[in-house]
């Protein structure tokens, strides 16, 4: 492989210290997210999928193992360097949207660009383009409480993509939405995955949602118990996921 993967985890473990007792949340996970992939991470609650997402998103550092995000080893990075890495490489979509309530859709989308030091005009131009991309150009000046749940999640997706990240990490993106709205949001994510080439990693406990992804990673007790990419690799000679 000449080009490095978007995210690469090798035997990554994460242990939390709770009241002096160390609790392992992740016990050695090895996986690679290639550019342009569409992956679902599934598993029951407590299986370690949230911890995995925090690690893949550069919000946390592994207790042991090697983790490369955007080709960069996160070991020993400072909080500021991690912040820069997240801003450059990762887009986050959360179950509860996490929009700033007193801020317009446009400025919510422009928020990550603030931390790139872009000027207000440039930020708004890019944010407006992104809102158009998710079909919300008519909602630019609306505040989150003036938008429906599906619209709010679209704003959040626009915000995740405005920095042109390599990977979009979505944590239960449909968890707070009804079935139809959820399906529309998933469709949007799939469409962006195909059109923009951004890798989408979807964390969910919903089997149906997971089934829509090309690759499924199943977690249990802090371990990956199945990964359809491995199956594909063993089943066919097409070892690499197409970019």
């Amino acid at each position: 492989m000449t080009q490095h993967a978007a995210i690469e985890a090798i035997d990554v473990a994460r242990t939390y210290a709770l009241d002096g007792v160390s609790v392992p949340a992740l016990r050695g996970v090895t996986l690679t997210i290639a550019h342009g992939e569409h992956v679902a991470v599934v598993g029951p609650s407590g299986s370690g999928k949230s911890t995995l997402m925090h690690l893949l998103g550069g919000l946390d550092q592994p207790t042991s193992g090697r983790l490369r995000i955007g080709g960069r080893d996160v070991a020993g990075l400072t909080a500021a360097e991690m912040a820069h890495l997240r801003n450059a490489t990762i887009g986050f979509v959360f179950q509860s949207f996490h929009l700033l309530s007193r801020t317009s859709a446009l400025d919510n989308v422009a928020l990550p660009l603030v931390y790139r030091g872009l000027g207000a005009r440039e930020r708004r131009e890019q944010a407006a383009r992104m809102l158009e991309r998710v079909g919300l150009s008519h909602r630019i000046g609306h505040r989150p409480n003036q938008l429906s749940g599906g619209e709010q999640q679209r704003v959040a997706i626009a915000r995740a993509l405005v920095t042109e990240p390599a990977v979009l990490l979505a944590d239960e993106p449909t968890g707070n939405l009804d079935q139809a709205t959820g399906a529309a949001v998933l469709e949007l994510l799939e469409q962006l995955n195909t059109a923009e080439g951004v890798a989408v990693v979807l964390v969910t406990h919903d089997r149906e949602v997971a089934a829509r992804a090309r690759r499924q990673i199943t977690m249990r007790d802090g371990r990956v118990v199945s990964d359809t990419a491995d199956d594909a690799e063993t089943a066919s000679d097409a070892g690499e996921v197409p970019r």
Partner: peptide, 16 residues
């Protein structure tokens, strides 16, 4: 705190 967490996820450094 949630807003701080969000800003950090989006790339805010501790000093920001």
């Amino acid at each position: 705190t949630r807003e701080i967490g969000l800003r950090m996820a989006l790339g805010a450094r501790p000093r920001d």
